[in-house]
C-alpha cells in the first residue's frame, strides 16, 4: 500500500479513493452487523481497532470469501503471504502436488477459491501443456502469485497476444504507425516460428499499462524480460514474470525464491508446537498452540469459535504430515 508523496496536494476524495479506506470501512461495518452479538461484547471501538490491526498485519483475509480476498492489492498480497506461511512445509518436504490438490489447500484458507485461478497458475508452471503433471510448491506458489495478483493484466495481455498471433493490430491498444508496420513485417516471417515478435509485444503491453487501472508489473521489468528474446510465447512471458525477482519484491508478499522454504521463526514455533503435542497429546485449548502467528486467532474477539477449531485441526494435520513423511 504505497502512497504517492504528493498526497497533500490531493483533494479529500482523491486521497480516500487512493487508499481503499472506504472499502475497508464498509466491510468492517458489514462484518459488524453480520456478527453483532459476538463482536460487540468487547465494545465497538475495540472491534474496529482489531479489524484495522488485522488488515494492517495482513491476516484479515483468512477464511473470507473470494470476492473479499480479491478486492484490493493489499488483500491479494496478504492472501499469498498466508498461503505461503501455512503450506511452506509441503515445499520443504519436496512433495509434488497436482492441480486439484493445490485447489483443496487453497480452499482450506478460502472456501470458495475458484478452480479456474488454480488452473491458470498451473498453466503457467506447465507452459499450458500436460495439465495433469505434478508441480513443486515453489513453482506453483510463484505462478499463483502472478495469476492471482495480476489477473486482469494477464487477461488483457492474452488478448493482445492472440491478436498479434492472428496478425491483427490489437484493437485494445492505440498503436503508433511505426509499430503497425513493424508488426506487419514481423508477421510475414512469423509463420514458421513460435510466439510473437518481442519488440511489438513490448510496445503493445506498454500501451496497455499506460491506461491500466489494475495492477501490472513494472514496465522496466517487462522490458527487461522482452529485450532478452527476439520472439516470445505467451506462457514463456508469464513464466519469466513469475521468475522475476524484482516483480516479486515489488509485490512484497513472498520472499526471494531462494529463501522460500526458510523461515526460522516459524520453524521454531513449529518445533515448540510438536514438542507440546508430544508432551500433552490431549491438550487442545487454543492457548497451547502458539504457532500460526499470522492467523487471526490472536485477534480473539473477531473470530468465531468455529474458525478457531478449524485452524487447530489444520495445524495438527500438517504437522502429522511432516512427521510421517520424514519417517
Amino acid at each position: 500500500m504505497k502512497m504517492n508523496p504528493d498526497r497533500f496536494t490531493l483533494t479529500e476524495d482523491e486521497y480516500l479513493a487512493d487508499t481503499n479506506v472506504l472499502f475497508y470501512l464498509n466491510d468492517a461495518v458489514a462484518q459488524l452487523l453480520e456478527h453483532r452479538e459476538e463482536y460487540t461484547q468487547f465494545g465497538v471501538v475495540r472491534y474496529f481497532a482489531e479489524y484495522f490491526t488485522s488488515v494492517k498485519n495482513g491476516n484479515h483475509v483468512l477464511f473470507r470469501e473470494f470476492n473479499y480476498i480479491k478486492a484490493t492489492p493489499h488483500n491479494r498480497a496478504s492472501f499469498l503471504h498466508i498461503f505461503w506461511k501455512c503450506f511452506r512445509q509441503i515445499g520443504k518436504n519436496g512433495d509434488l502436488l497436482a492441480v486439484l490438490e493445490y485447489s483443496s489447500l487453497l480452499q482450506l484458507l478460502c472456501p470458495d477459491f475458484p478452480l479456474e485461478v488454480v488452473q491458470g497458475a498451473a498453466r503457467i508452471v506447465l507452459m499450458d501443456d500436460a495439465m495433469d503433471c505434478l508441480m513443486s510448491f515453489s513453482d506453483f506458489l510463484y505462478s499463483l502469485q502472478i495469476q492471482f495478483y495480476f489477473e486482469e493484466f494477464l487477461e488483457n495481455v492474452a488478448v493482445i497476444y492472440q491478436d498479434l498471433l492472428s496478425g491483427k493490430t490489437p484493437n485494445t491498444v492505440i498503436v503508433p504507425t511505426s509499430v503497425e508496420q513493424l508488426s506487419n513485417a514481423a508477421n510475414e516471417e512469423a509463420e514458421t516460428q513460435e510466439g510473437v515478435d518481442s519488440l511489438v509485444f513490448c510496445e503493445c503491453i506498454k500501451g496497455l499499462c499506460e491506461r491500466f487501472k489494475h495492477n501490472y508489473p513494472s514496465i522496466s521489468a517487462i522490458k527487461e524480460i522482452l529485450e532478452n528474446n527476439q520472439r516470445m510465447t505467451f506462457y514463456g512471458f508469464l513464466m519469466a514474470i513469475a521468475k522475476h525477482e524484482g516483480i516479486n519484491q515489488d509485490i512484497g508478499a513472498l520472499p526471494n525464491r531462494t529463501d522460500v522454504l526458510i523461515d526460522p521463526e516459524m520453524d521454531q514455533e513449529l518445533e515448540r508446537l510438536i514438542a507440546q503435542i508430544s508432551v500433552s497429546p490431549t491438550s487442545n485449548s487454543s492457548s497451547s498452540l502458539p504457532g500460526h502467528k499470522e492467523t487471526p486467532r490472536k485477534a480473539s474477539p473477531r473470530k468465531s469459535l468455529h474458525h478457531r477449531k478449524r485452524i487447530e485441526m489444520e495445524s495438527d494435520g500438517s504437522t502429522e504430515e511432516t512427521d510421517s513423511s520424514e519417517n
Partner: peptide
Amino acid sequence: EDPIGFLAEHF
C-alpha cells in the same frame, strides 16, 4: 502514508 495503520492506531 499508511492510512490503514493510522486507523488501527486511532481505534
